[in-house]
Nucleic acid binder design. Structure first.
Length: 498
RNA sequence: GGGGCUAUCGUCUAGGGGUUAGGACAUCGCCCUUUCACGGCGACAACACGGGUUCGAAUCCCGUUAGCCCUACCA
């Protein structure tokens, strides 16, 4: 069944990605964002980027820019959210899209309303008192709770405190039954009410003021205010969801659909972290990966698209275009269990995508990995350079394979010299140096003629040329190598060997 | 401690009562070849464990184990 059919509301699909600007854009976050993006695109809906910058100590405009640029690079464009390079502006009708800018306008009125309606209450318990109780519970080996079980009746739930003293604000949770979450990927999950106690929606403020609201509160206010219909997020949020559901209900809002997607683990099954290698999207960019490869690899982690009801059955089918992914995407096909990140497969997909791309498509991605001189080269030259190296696993490999075209070799591979720079081959080399018609066919014909005259095999001459021209017996196809260098440069590099 | 989620080749996964348990990446071997690659062909390789239910269980149920998440006036 399509998840859309289960949505009671007839509003257009809206998803959102809400990262914290804490210094980098994590690959796991990008994957979640990708699912949100795919889902929105598939259903012709909107995709929102929202910045959760309530962690004042780590949130900076620079970090927000890192997120924006990372998202832009990986090709996840947002319909609503911040405007790159304009910290105080945004696009979309539900702004601001930075939480710190929503305090007075959105969060505080919502808290006040809940208190006024008796759905939430002021709590005068201090952090110290709470810590004390927590320690006590721990010593006794019983679970701490604010107002549940043995702690029932404790706390300020029924005290009806006014605002005359500093207070935090807690939400009254239902006290019996269960909160059920009908998750689009995990299925039905029940949370017994007696495990969910009254939680803080707003921290203690100054004097009679309401303090800064907490994450679980802001999320709900934002998601309702921004008309989010499908909350697609990491499954580390599953256990937060019953709190949020209770809040939706207290505020009288219709529930969105929830889809908790599994997290990405490192190769060893531990949470993906620095020691597994690259975790930030910026690093993947630097590795010479195509954004399309990153999208594909990330999407295929935990998701098996079905074509006509069948999962992909060949290497060819693994390489999906964005259009195919958007068309095929279905939350029902997402795995419940976490997946381990596999750099090898990403790398293979990257290679396949490089092979499939036209040289024009590749050029802008490749350019940053090449020296300045690249830009000045004629189109034809670029075409040859790219098509000649399009077997590489990454843009870095391609650039590396083209180095010889920009730098004369300073060192020469000893084994290569010993093996291929024979006396027998030198006269042939001399003839190659004299060639002037560098059109591919002419070059090939002349090359073969030289071979014949000197009784050499292709390998003998080609390898000797590679060593002389590139310093090592490795280069693109020999005719491409010659063409990229051109007759003058070939002559110059050959001179010392004649 | 409590609550929740998860478990098929090394990795991503298909399959959901009867299959030689299928594919992809990686690995290994062979072939192709002007180098390196690409490409082609092939091989290796899995149902976490223990109980049920059943004529029959990877598949359904219950336990166990392991991993992860939440259990904050973090997000």
């Amino acid at each position: 069944m399509c998840c859309l059919e289960k949505v009671p509301m007839s509003r257009p699909v809206v998803t959102r990605f809400a990262p914290s600007p804490t210094g980098m854009l994590h690959i796991g976050g990008v994957r979640t964002a990708l699912f949100c993006w795919l889902f929105a695109r598939k259903h012709g809906g909107r995709f929102i980027l929202r910045i959760e910058d309530t962690d004042l100590s780590r949130s900076t405009d620079d970090n927000i820019r890192i997120i924006e640029e990372g998202m832009a690079w990986v090709g996840l464009d947002w319909d609503e959210g911040p405007i790159v390079g304009e910290p105080s502006q945004w696009k979309g009708p539900h702004g601001p899209y930075r939480q710190m800018q929503r305090m007075e306008s959105h969060y505080k009125p919502a808290v006040e309303k809940l208190i006024a309606e008796g759905k939430a209450y002021r709590c005068r318990c201090t952090r110290e008192e709470l810590d004390e109780r927590r320690k006590l519970a721990e010593a006794k080996g019983v679970p701490f709770s604010y107002n549940l079980g043995v702690d029932a009746g404790k706390g300020c739930r029924d005290a009806n405190h006014d605002a005359s003293q500093p207070y935090s604000v807690r939400l009254k949770m239902p006290q019996d039954g269960a909160i059920v979450l009908d998750d689009l990927v995990k299925g039905r999950i029940e949370f017994p009410a007696d495990t969910l106690d009254d939680w803080i929606i707003a921290r203690t403020g100054e004097g009679t003021e309401i303090g800064v609201p907490t994450y679980n509160f802001c999320v709900v206010v934002d998601d309702t205010g921004m008309e989010v219909t499908h909350v697609i997020r990491g499954d580390d949020h599953v256990a937060n969801t019953p709190k949020q559901i209770a809040l939706y209900q207290a505020m009288g809002f219709e529930l969105p659909r929830f889809a908790h997607v599994p997290m990405i683990l490192g190769k060893d099954g531990a949470k993906l972290s620095k020691r597994h290698g690259a975790t930030s999207i910026t690093e993947y960019q630097a590795l010479g990966l195509l954004p399309s490869a990153v999208r594909l690899a990330l999407a295929r982690l935990s998701w098996t698209p079905k074509i006509d009801g069948k999962a992909v059955e060949s290497a060819e089918e693994e390489i999906l275009t964005d259009e195919q992914m958007i068309q095929l995407f279905d939350l029902n096909e997402i795995q419940k269990s976490p997946a381990r990140f596999d750099m090898d497969k990403l790398s293979w997909m990257n290679q396949k995508l490089i092979q499939k791309a036209t040289w024009q498509e590749l050029e802008p991605h490749l350019r940053p990995f090449l020296p300045e001189a690249w830009s000045a080269k004629p189109e034809d030259w670029k075409r040859i350079a790219i098509t000649a190296t399009q077997k590489g696993k990454s843009l870095v490999e391609m650039a590396e394979a083209l180095r010889f075209a920009f730098e004369r070799p300073t060192e020469f591979d000893e084994k290569g010299v010993a093996k291929f720079m024979t006396e027998a081959v030198k006269p042939a080399l001399r003839e190659v140096a004299g060639l002037s018609d560098y059109a591919h066919d002419a070059l090939e014909a002349a090359f073969n003629a030289i071979l014949e005259r000197h009784g050499l095999k292709t390998k003998d001459l080609a390898q000797a040329l590679r060593v002389a021209l590139c310093g090592k017996p490795v280069s693109p196809g020999i005719f491409d190598t010659l063409m990229l260098l051109g007759p003058d440069e070939v002559l110059a590099r050959l001179e010392k060997w004649l």
